[in-house]
Simulated scan of single mutants.
Amino acid sequence: MNHPSGETIWGNINTAVEIAMNIYLIAAKDENGFEREGIMVPKSKAKEVLSEKAISMAEQDGDWLCYGEDTKDIPMYEMLQRRVAACKRMETKAIEMMQEIRRDGSLRLTDYFGECAPPVPFEAEKSSPEQLNRVRNGIYFVHSEGEDYFAVYESVADNFMSDIAEGFGRKQGEYLFYDLTTAAVPLFELRQIYDEVEDLIVSEDSLLATLNENFGVYISYYNDLMQEEAKIPPVEAPICFFLQKQLDRAAQEPDHSADTEMQSNLIPLTFGEEAEDFGFEP
């Protein structure tokens, strides 16, 4: 619809300015030469920009709804309401984008954004030094609730780990937590990216044996994507002895290997539920 022009209920239009989509501020001169102001909205677009209550309070002039000196604040108010709502949506989106940039920047642009914040153990509001063992930026060992966990910052996981590997983690804050059995999956993938992670693995055979024994879905998923020479092979070795922490724990608890094997059967019910459904049929 064209801008309003010609005669209106207030006289002949001198100027018509679109102050918002389909909302026009009008300056008109009546037959006595007095200038009048009002707001006009096309009837065909009124429901898109005004509430039913606002529409009911307008004067009608052909194809237009008119708001004079006494009522023009009604469409102005609703126009500003819409702008505030739009600004809030834009602000929310901008904040999300800033958070995403800061999140990735903590990994890639540490000189500007600083390093990734350390993870928070499950039972504490604040991390204490004895609970955290930093492997590198965004990767930690965490001692919490009497257990040790391998913690991976979500940006590290998103950039360098597969979706199925992420699915075995327990999300808290900005980190994925893996117990020392499920840690086999992220360790296997991240060791190819970071030397510091590669250095954590004291037994490659035990790592591969643990994957074969406990993570058949992951083995099938990974091997289906890889060329023959890069596939994970079957390996005969003690399981869950690929980290020094596991060796230390076994040395302190001679019968722990049996407990570890029994507990590993429970992993899919706790940490691994999400990893069971990736649309892949081995």
Rank of each mutant, 00 (worst) to 15 (best):
L266K: 04
T92W: 09
F271M: 07
D111A: 15
E7T: 11
I267Y: 14
S155I: 01
I26E: 09
S220P: 11
S106K: 03
D63L: 00
E261S: 13
G33A: 05
M161H: 01
V235D: 14
G216N: 11
I55L: 00
A250G: 09
L187H: 01
L50P: 09
N223M: 04
D195M: 08
T71S: 12
E91S: 03
T110A: 13
R36N: 07
E213R: 15
E69V: 00
P186R: 04
P4H: 05
T270M: 12
E281Q: 03
R89Q: 06
S162F: 00
Y178R: 15
A250L: 04
K93S: 08
N12T: 03
L50C: 01
R103L: 12
L243W: 08
T270P: 08
C116Y: 08
P233Y: 08
T260N: 13
M97N: 10
E189A: 14
E78N: 00
G216Q: 11
S155R: 12
I139G: 10
E145K: 14
S264C: 07
E281D: 05
A124D: 02
K72Y: 01
L25T: 09
E78R: 01
E147P: 08
L243Q: 03
F241Y: 08
S257G: 04
A58P: 08
D224W: 04
I26L: 06
R83G: 04
E96L: 05
E91P: 02
L25V: 02
M98F: 05
V185Y: 13
V152F: 10
I193F: 13
G173A: 10
E69K: 10
F215C: 04
V142T: 07
E100S: 10
V235R: 12
G169N: 00
D195I: 04
N137M: 03
D104P: 02
I101P: 04
S155D: 10
N212Y: 14
F242Y: 15
R191G: 14
S144E: 09
D259W: 13
